[in-house]
Amino acid sequence: MLRAKDSFSCLFMLSMENLKTFFHTREGVIRAVDGVSLELSRGGSLGIVGESGSGKSVTCYSLLRLLPMPPARFEGGSACFEGRDLLTMPVKELRAIRGRRIGMIFQDPMTSLNPYLRVSTQLTEPLRVHLGIGKAGALDQAVAALQAVGIADAEQRIHSYPHEFSGGMRQRVMIAMALITRPDILIADEPTTALDVTVQKQVLDLIGRRREELGTAVIFISHDLAVVSGVCDYVHVMYGGRVVEAAPVRELFENPLHAYTRALQRSIPALQEKGKPLYTIPGMPPDLSRPTPGCAFAPRRPARARAACLANHRPELVETSPGHWVQDCPGCRDAGLDDAF
């Protein structure tokens, strides 16, 4: 699953192989993404989960080359979209894919919409630029797109400015905009983090519904395992710029193999009992400018487990059952070494 050979790559619409994105800063080289591979099939849905700084967003920004370069630099790997490498293709060709074949929704709908332009201008732009549709036709389609994401009174509202919409409505506009060219892939980078739980539910349902209607594949990034579990079929758990575990969503929740996945699950506040202190993952996320030679999660493991963690070489992913991959670190894979679980 994670290491598709060249002969398999046609099976997947998108296959990322051993991506390395480093940031070259004054403080040193930050290995934000350090060897990540993933595959996405047509119409599939993939979740990437991890804490801030785990490299989940950089992975997706790398795909569309949205990172400032420098300081960012690809140090290796490839990302093949229908057989062409997104990381090396000329920018001109990439532009025909970005926004047309691969759409993206960002975390904060206020900063990702242009406050100076009416929603109508922003919604019709992709249609006119990518598909060459005329003004009137584009406007009709844009109104239909707004209706499809559940904005009432779309004919009038489309002429409003972004600030005239609430947070949830703005995120709906973003979704409509990202899907208006009927892309093959939708990348959603924490699309509901800035929203209320009730609005979050509406937005998640909406993404799910539009995905079914249009057959769009989705890459969904979140720090919240519960949110990802509702949207995705397959989940990658990232830690310190690497994938520590990847499995079908049900398998990941029922049979988590890596200590970090187990810790993430335990730390969801909604799943914990009142009265007791909430479980928290001890320690701090790793400093990506000083990579450890061994298991990156070891410092956050209890002492007994830490002793068993790989110290001198990085744990590699192994497939334990069909589709279930986990970093092969003896200190992290053994649930018996977790304290008080």
């Binding site: 739980v197 009730t198 539910k201 998640l204 519960a226 579990s229 969801i268 909604a270």
Partner: peptide, 12 residues
């Protein structure tokens, strides 16, 4: 309704 909106894990 507020409670229903809390994201749940589908399994477990």
């Amino acid at each position: 309704r507020l409670l229903d909106a809390v994201p749940r894990i589908r399994f477990g």
